[in-house]
Simulated scan of single mutants.
Amino acid sequence: MSTTSFLVRKDALSTTRLDTAADEPLADGQVRVRIESFALTSNNITYAAFGDAMSYWQFFPTGEEGWGSIPVWGFASVVQSLHPGVAVGERLYGYWPMASSAVLSPDRLSPARFTDAAAHRAALPAVYNQYVRCSADPLYTPDTEDLQALLRPLFITSWLIDDFMADNDFFGAGTLLLSSASSKTAYGTAFQLHRRQGIQVIGLTSPGNVAFCESLGCYDRVLTYDALDALAADTSCVYVDFAGNGELRHAIHARFPNLKYSCSIGGTHVEQLASKGAGKALPGPRPTLFFAPAQIKKRTAEWGGEEFGRRMVAAWHDFLAAVTGPKDAWLRAEHHHGAEAVQAAYAQVLAGKGDPRSGHVLSLYKHPGAL
């Protein structure tokens, strides 16, 4: 058997290649999984953009200098097992390389999940090392796998951003400005914020995505990026940046002297990460990177793991009901199978192109009967 992997140049994310290598035998205690589907969103581009700074490249090392494997979220099935607690055929949700298969070293097993105890992952954030056993997952249903792959990790981040803002009393502001308002993490955050009293949620987006953002019903106002002057300059606000657009960040910091907090979530505008809007020269508060695992750790300590899970599951079901509601669906999955299709989808997501209602679900696994 062999594994096909999709690799990118760490210093030139548009440069990619496919690599096929023979599988090595498993060691005792390891399992091999077939990665059957994974989502590719702007969130994964953020993983690549911050791959060195936040250690995302370390999860699935390629062994080749300068080349990385972008982590993705999706579903896999166990096809080989030398671990007595994990059966062949078991279905898992978790964090994978962009590849057709992967090897895990399960540890700390429970009926609901286990941790990959591979030595190179020991010092990395624990939330990314956990694999959920679908048979005992309260969020799992077979018919919503695509939406789970596309939205679940993003929505958890959205839910945590909302919780972080509320935990800090919105830094004394009554208005939140969300960039990249058509992105899944942004509208997941807006969905949560919109339910809070006294908070105005304003989405910032490109002209072509205004109608989509307005149709969601979770933004109080939607403005194009060049329409910041539609808001009073003395607005007391928080900026939540989902794209890392340095020019926009600078414009917001310069426009609003009552900017209370500047929160950086993502970095899909890779070419602008080092621009004038990224650093120390900005007026107002220094942009602060939001790190979801830190808020998870805080709330788990305060609420306990069971209560944290209960709240998150309830919020997820509410969000899924809105996304799949009787009106226009917020999101529909587009499937891409095989190496060429994966390369094409990656190029589209990297370029920030496409319909915001479309989500890319990919697979490098060669299905039986495929030519």
Results as ranks from 00 to 15, higher is better:
134 C>E: 05
140 Y>H: 15
114 F>E: 00
123 A>W: 02
23 D>M: 01
270 V>Q: 09
53 A>L: 14
107 D>V: 05
89 G>R: 07
332 R>F: 01
119 A>F: 03
150 L>G: 04
206 S>I: 06
110 S>W: 10
258 N>Y: 04
246 G>W: 02
335 H>R: 15
196 R>M: 08
145 E>K: 07
282 L>N: 10
278 A>I: 08
10 K>P: 11
89 G>T: 14
17 R>P: 02
24 E>P: 01
136 A>D: 05
196 R>E: 13
254 A>I: 02
187 Y>G: 06
208 G>C: 04
102 A>C: 09
307 E>G: 01
312 M>H: 05
248 L>G: 00
35 I>A: 01
320 L>M: 15
28 D>M: 13
290 F>C: 09
151 L>F: 09
144 T>G: 04
230 A>Y: 08
225 Y>I: 06
230 A>P: 02
235 T>G: 10
180 S>Q: 04
253 H>Q: 14
167 D>T: 12
57 W>V: 09
275 S>T: 11
50 F>P: 08
57 W>L: 10
27 A>E: 15
175 T>V: 13
295 Q>C: 10
216 L>H: 12
3 T>L: 03
156 I>G: 09
181 A>H: 11
34 R>C: 13
280 K>N: 11
276 K>F: 02
18 L>R: 10
39 A>G: 15
229 D>G: 00
315 A>P: 00
327 K>R: 14
118 A>F: 04
243 A>E: 15
56 Y>V: 01
144 T>Q: 13
102 A>N: 12
56 Y>D: 01
371 L>S: 12
81 S>A: 12
43 N>S: 04
349 V>W: 04
28 D>E: 15
142 P>I: 03
128 Y>C: 08
357 R>I: 03
130 Q>A: 12
311 R>Y: 00
12 A>T: 06
274 A>T: 13
147 L>R: 10
43 N>R: 05
93 Y>R: 06
77 S>H: 10
315 A>Y: 00
297 K>I: 11
90 E>D: 15
263 C>T: 12
7 L>H: 05
81 S>I: 08
285 P>T: 11
45 I>K: 08
250 H>K: 15
184 K>T: 03
91 R>P: 00
254 A>K: 14
49 A>F: 08
290 F>Y: 13
76 A>C: 07
165 M>D: 01
20 T>N: 04
55 S>Q: 13
55 S>D: 14
185 T>H: 04
180 S>V: 03
29 G>Q: 08
243 A>T: 10
137 D>H: 02
212 F>S: 05
199 I>R: 14
